[in-house]
Amino acid sequence: MIGKLVFALVATALAPVLGGLISGVDRRITAWLQSRYGPPVLQPFYDVLKLLGKRPMATNIWQVLCAYVYLSAAAVSVFLFFLQTDLLLIFFTLTVGAVFLVMGALASPSPYSQIGGQRELLQMLAYEPLLILVFVAIAMTTGSFKISAVFAMDKPLLYSLPLIFVVLGYALTIKLRKSPFDISTCHHAHQELVRGVLTEYSGPYLAALEIAHWFEVVLMLSICALFWATSVWGMLILVALTYFVEILVDNVMARMTWKWMLRSVLGVGLVLSVLNMLWLYAN
């Protein structure tokens, strides 16, 4: 038990470092795809360090509260993941963070963050059912919602749940704030929305949100890794490939509207999960 706790604590402490590196590599690959040179791999760390050193500025105190609750909830959900607890519980903890992010955006009277908050809610409406379905599918294959049960499998989950992995890919794209689903905020400033939910956050508070996002990236990719839990190399290759596809999709897709997102994500997600479950039962 103590060993598991220490492992989870260390993993949680390292998660933002890993998340920042992933984000740096992401920016390098994106630049490469756009025939640019791109920033140093450590650039995300420079950005966050700089933000931490800026003078705090907020529109009201609730925003600040919400930013830090979001950060805490993201960290806790990563901790619970590496403690190998319940997938559904991790999902609910992740929701705490997402809800507080939205509440923080809605707490400011800025029109940009208000619209961003509403769109973020629609994004949640799109990915939450999918994530629950993914977790249920995993649980129905392994017999338990516990992550440890996934590691007890002798065959990678991907063999039995290929379509569910695609569904997870949809949720991942939304959660990573990649096109075509970067409708509430993203890493670039969009004309009509500035940066949506992030518009009113600045300095250290923006840094807190960025770190929270790194936690979420690590968590989402770790969930992807569960689909090849039988070997470490398998996990790494699967995650690397998935992430590369995400970057590719981000670069070739235009940003879409929320209506299109709800229709396509829920429609495709539901159909694919039902097909996969039918196939699983037929076997």
Partner: peptide, 21 residues
Amino acid sequence: TPLYDIERFGIINVGNPKHAD
């Protein structure tokens, strides 16, 4: 643009004074 690519220096064009240096 790719020719000058100021992101090499970590420079990002942001749309909001609250994020700008």
